[in-house]
């Protein structure tokens, strides 16, 4: 399987400030990949490097097996705050798309605009945040890219617009099998659409893997206070907290936990992500098993 995106030692600096430093990761193709992390983790920088809007200061990045260049017909991008031309109408945006993309699917674009209830004659500057995001997604998708990069596309939307947008995205990927990489700092949004998750903290991948594997492989253990070092092979501690009498651990384990002195709870995706994002998460838990 070729990789949608791979990076090695990728660094982007602005003067002395590093927006992304020494980032290495691999994103599988054919998936809807969620990229989560706190603000400033380098998600936006990584996505803009991937679509060629930025050039790396050092390191290597490959997208669909090639060095990314802006203007590639194979990669679509919806930027944070979903920029559109305020003076152009919705229909004119589609016309623009048809003029600047040889692989433009006009029929799809018009159908999607009709489905999302946008008025083709409306100026894009008058659209609400959610409508603008829908328009930007339509333009990026009608280009028929092999990889669609979405930078926090739902961050500014209200919950209803968010749901509509994500449903639109799911229909799209179901139809075409496009690879998608979508960043967010809200796990709930990603949980709904993503089947693969990458947690990026301070330019480093904390965990990456299939959503189902992550859910099956992580547990919360609650029991009397003890040293987590004696847990045994195949169990890695992600987060731990202790009181006088009780220890609470979040662990990653390939095998079922059968020690009866632990109370074992399932975790939802948000718990897992927060555990990896929290300060006490050890640095050495990296690539997930696939």
């Amino acid at each position: 399987m070729t990789e949608a995106l791979s990076a090695e030692g990728l660094t982007k600096r602005y003067g002395r400030r590093a927006a992304l430093s020494d980032c290495s990761l691999a994103v599988p193709a054919g998936r809807v990949v969620g990229l989560v992390g706190p603000n400033g983790a380098g998600k936006s920088t990584l996505l803009q490097l991937a679509c060629g809007l930025l050039d790396p200061t050092s390191g290597r990045i490959e997208v669909l097996g090639e060095r990314p260049v802006s203007g590639s017909p194979r990669v679509g991008f919806v930027a944070q705050d979903t920029p559109v031309y305020a003076g152009l109408t919705v229909a004119e945006h589609l016309r623009m798309g048809a003029h600047v993309n040889p692989s433009w699917d006009a029929e799809f674009a018009e159908r999607r605009i009709a489905q999302t209830g946008l008025d083709p004659a409306q100026r894009a500057g008058k659209l609400s945040g959610g409508q603008r995001a829908q328009l930007a997604l339509t333009v990026a998708a009608a280009k028929q890219p092999d990889l669609l990069l979405l930078d926090e596309p739902v961050a500014s939307l209200d919950p209803l617009a968010r749901r509509t947008f994500l449903r639109g995205l799911m229909e799209l990927t179901a139809d075409r099998g496009t690879s998608v990489v979508m960043s967010s700092h809200l796990v709930a949004d990603l949980e709904r659409v993503c089947d693969y998750l990458i947690v990026l903290v301070a330019s480093q991948v904390r965990v990456a893997g299939e959503v189902d594997d992550l859910l099956a492989g992580h547990h919360r253990l609650v029991g009397r206070r003890r040293d987590p070092a004696g847990l045994g092979a195949g169990i890695a501690v992600v987060e731990q907290s202790h009181t006088e009498v009780q220890s609470t651990l979040i662990v990653r384990s390939t095998a079922p936990i059968d020690d009866p002195s632990w109370q074992v709870d399932r975790l939802d995706l948000e718990d897992i992500v927060l555990a990896y994002m929290s300060e006490s998460a050890p640095q050495w838990v990296l690539e997930g098993q696939r």
Partner: peptide, 12 residues
């Protein structure tokens, strides 16, 4: 920010 719209179409 519209450069991020136009520069990610299929035009260099």
């Amino acid at each position: 920010g519209t450069y991020r719209l136009i520069f990610t179409q299929s035009v260099s």
